[in-house]
């Protein structure tokens, strides 16, 4: 599919490598440290859950890993590219070609139909006829009959399924999911996470997911706990809590 699946490269390079990442935001009076000295590695094909309480910094970490923002200190290497050294446009290109997103609040454009929402990243990537691919994905997530419906006409679960179809549309090598079931009831959430996991397996995508849903986290190959901006192994976290 692309060079990233080259086994040699895959062997030598982790999908994601974070070294001494620290992130601060300036408020009016002082500076707030959101992440402190985070280091981690995620291998190709791995599925990783980042868990933690609200406000622990997990969503910020996810954004930094995905190159939506740049850290104050430290390095993030995504598929071999050092994010801080890239320009904003280069980061955008990286996202367009290799990264997929699923958000807690779905982030579908209300004016567009389900089909058009899924076509959006394909159009951005310059695909010639994105319609067929978008339809195929919507059929895969079970919405083949609802192509022309706008988000308002879809239930929450259906909206998230459109978002998942969109995330996989551009064949990403890594998928970032931010509380993908956070706005859904248990059963719908279960169905959506099944879909996410299945597609992830089918496409061989690396998955990084932020969640506080323990069941969902348990379905991932590895779990990272984050507390007050510091990354800990879950076992260690439990000990601390005790």
């Amino acid at each position: 599919m692309n060079q990233m699946t080259d086994p040699k490269l895959a062997a030598t390079n982790p999908m994601l490598r974070v070294t001494d990442l620290t992130h601060r935001v300036s408020l009016e009076t002082d500076t707030l440290t959101i992440l402190q000295g985070v280091s981690l590695e995620i291998n190709r094909g791995e599925s990783v859950a980042i868990v933690g309480r609200s406000g622990s910094g997990k969503t910020t970490l996810l954004g930094l890993l995905a190159g939506l923002d740049t850290p104050t200190e430290g390095k993030v290497e995504l598929d071999g590219a050092e994010i801080s050294s890239l320009t904003e446009d280069q980061r955008a290109q990286l996202r367009a070609s290799r990264v997929g997103f699923v958000f807690q609040s779905f982030q579908l454009l209300p004016a567009l139909s389900a089909l058009e929402n899924v076509m959006l990243p394909l159009e951005l990537a310059g695909m010639e006829s994105p319609e067929a691919r978008a339809k195929e994905l919507l059929e895969r997530v079970g919405l083949g009959e609802r192509l022309s419906h706008t988000p308002r006409q879809l239930s929450g679960g259906e909206q998230q399924r459109v978002a998942i179809a969109r995330a996989f549309a551009s064949d990403p090598v890594i998928l970032f999911a931010d509380e993908p079931t956070g706005n859904l009831d248990n059963r719908t959430g279960q169905a959506v996470s099944d879909l996410l996991m299945d597609l992830n397996r089918e496409q061989g995508t690396t998955l990084v997911m932020v969640t506080h849903d323990e069941h969902l986290a348990a379905r991932c190959g590895r779990q990272l706990q984050i507390e007050a901006g510091v990354l800990t192994e879950p076992e260690a976290a439990r000990e601390l809590a005790d």
Binding site: A96, F101, L120
Partner: peptide, 11 residues
């Protein structure tokens, strides 16, 4: 959203 999905600023 377009930027998140990889749309370049200039484009």
């Amino acid at each position: 959203l377009l930027r998140t999905l990889g749309g370049q600023q200039s484009l």
